[in-house]
Design a protein around this nucleic acid. Sequence first.
DNA 1: CAGGATCCCAAGCGATACTG
DNA 2: CAGTATCGCTTGGGATCCTG
Lengths: 130, 130
Amino acid sequence: MGSEQAGRAPEDADAVRADSLAREIFTGVASKWSLLIIEVLRDRTLRFSELRDEVEGISHKMLTQTLRRLERDGVVHRTVHPTVPPRVEYRLTDAGRSLRDTVNGMCAWSRMHLDEIEASRHRFDAQQHA
Amino acid sequence: MGSEQAGRAPEDADAVRADSLAREIFTGVASKWSLLIIEVLRDRTLRFSELRDEVEGISHKMLTQTLRRLERDGVVHRTVHPTVPPRVEYRLTDAGRSLRDTVNGMCAWSRMHLDEIEASRHRFDAQQHA
DNA sequence: CAGGATCCCAAGCGATACTG
DNA sequence: CAGTATCGCTTGGGATCCTG
């Protein structure tokens, strides 16, 4: 993850710290549920229950948990309407939208290489027990 | 993950299967170690032990396990030199390199939003126990 | 050196019940 | 409706030992 670890003075501790932080952020964001939520939010505003339906397969717990992390990192914005019953809406922040662009790239990649990957898997599996 | 789930006939089972496959591929590839390995391979050819050193924090087991998955999906290519001791080299395939481009995007995003995210976290944490 | 197999613990996650 | 808390299973993944 180093921006470029070429020749860095050992006393340059800030760069090291930044690297490990970037790494921590990267691995935090690069998780199944985070990416799926980001992907599904696109540029819409969705309520908690709508997200729950759209993400498919995610549990109540994981949804809240992941949303909290994303909110904390400033990737999604959370709006609470003080009505009864409560209405809570989620949308991507600017940072979130820029992240989503790269996530879309991964989704596109998955779709684009579907057949190629499936073929590769068959080849691989056939070879194994050979 | 739907390419566009607008109006799809129920009998169009192929598209549904493709979607779930794309989803499975996406969540398979979008895992911490997979992405870090792809990131570290860039356009180099690395040996098993070199990868082990470069990925930092990965265990022997996770490295082999993840490499197998990536090889099976045709993302990395594995070359075994029948020497003694054995020499095994890994490099990205064409598909792998195109995936790496989007992974790079996520890494760049992490680095670019470092301070913004850190600030957001502090704000969030301060608010909480308020 | 590459990597399979085994053991085992801790984290991830789901299910359920409860609150505002 | 949105969210927290608790419990328990399941899994990920580390440590270690063994083979070609």
